[in-house]
Design a protein around this nucleic acid. Structure first.
Lengths: 209, 209
DNA sequence: GTCTATAAGCGGATAGAC
DNA sequence: GTCTATCCGCTTATAGAC
């Protein structure tokens, strides 16, 4: 593993544990087992590391999404729930980032622009998935406005569920994630067609596969 | 206005604008127009200021909630929407706090415990309000589990809506808050009785009063 | 690519005079 | 209550040898 990648990996671990504020470039260098000077050979400054982490995050998320859609068609209930679980894992993996999101974006205009690009893409993907659900007969036909609001609601739960658990002091475990999935089901329940509703009911007997 | 209160007010403004990380005790003292030493006469350290701000927040929120319930009975649609708007105003007023919430709690065990007390109270209040809605015939009868999940969903939107707008780079204005209310309506719509549904439909023609 | 050494500056916090 | 002066420690970042 290249030094650059080891720096990124160590930074993610430390940031997750102690927050970006509590972790200095010296700490990161020490964790990697290199000198502070060497770290500055690979990265201009701390913000540079942060941006590199974001690029890794973004690539990781898209890759995981492709894996899911390759196996499960978008718009199906199975795909929605798999995506939700994937996003929670993703948020956990880079949890410092979502935790400090607004503050990080406040500090770095470059990161801000970069993040919003991805954010808009994600929202579009959720919306597209819901359009597929309508086309597949999983959801009943929806007005444009309904589609917008529902997509946004789903994305919001996906985005903040982990944060919600943490803020409340709840452990981030299978039980917590399972409840997130229940929230998601609650959200889409009113829009399901009869057939899809029966499928969901059958699934709910064993809540999280 | 006492110096102590001026320090708190200045700290809130600066934190909101530049984040807690970008604001030092020296900055706060300068903004108030006092010496750094004087600031330390009134507060032990930066964390102490943060905790004092939280106490102010908490008192402010409860006071506003009492004002609403004094005029609008809990469990009515009007009370729900007024509470939602109130919470958004509250979140805006102390926006740095919600923005950096998890990071702040991570840094300060005292604040963490203190916050969670309030958080649990708020969740209980939402749940109670929903029980009232059932009793008033606004909501249809709900199973315990449904009540838990719905209350949590409502609380989550109330808690994160402002953050959601900011993260997406959207302005926090009437349009943005109005969409938050629409999200709330979307959430409760499936649980309304016929009578309440008619009332809501009438209201939705002029979205935000 | 990696190290050592170090400059430069800042932030938090205290002591003691007024 | 408020100020001035000041200290310590830490963090970022660079220079230059290997």
């Amino acid at each position: 593993m290249k030094t650059r990648d080891r720096i990124i990996a160590a930074a993610i671990d430390l940031f997750n544990e102690q927050g970006t504020k509590g972790v200095t470039t010296n700490h990161i260098a020490a964790a990697v087992g290199i000198s502070p000077g060497n770290l500055y050979y690979h990265f201009r400054n701390k913000g540079d590391i942060l941006r590199a982490i974001f690029e890794e995050m973004d690539a990781y998320g898209l890759e995981r999404y492709r894996e899911i859609t390759a196996e499960t068609p978008p718009g199906t209930l199975a795909a929605m729930e798999r995506c939700f679980v994937m996003i929670q894992e993703y948020n956990w993996r880079y949890r410092f980032f979502k935790r400090e999101l607004t503050a990080l974006l406040l500090d770095d205009p470059l990161l801000r622009e970069r993040f919003r690009l991805t954010h808009r893409q994600m929202l579009a993907i959720v919306r597209q998935s819901n359009e597929c659900a309508v086309a597949l007969g999983v959801f009943r036909p929806l007005a444009e406005r309904e589609l917008d609001l529902l997509s946004e609601a789903i994305w919001m739960v996906a985005l903040f569920w982990l944060n919600y658990l943490e803020v409340g002091g709840e452990p981030v475990d299978d039980a917590g994630l399972g409840r997130g999935i229940e929230q998601l089901r609650l959200l889409i329940a009113p829009y399901l067609t009869e057939g899809a509703r029966a499928e969901l009911a059958a699934k709910s007997e064993r809540p999280v596969p």
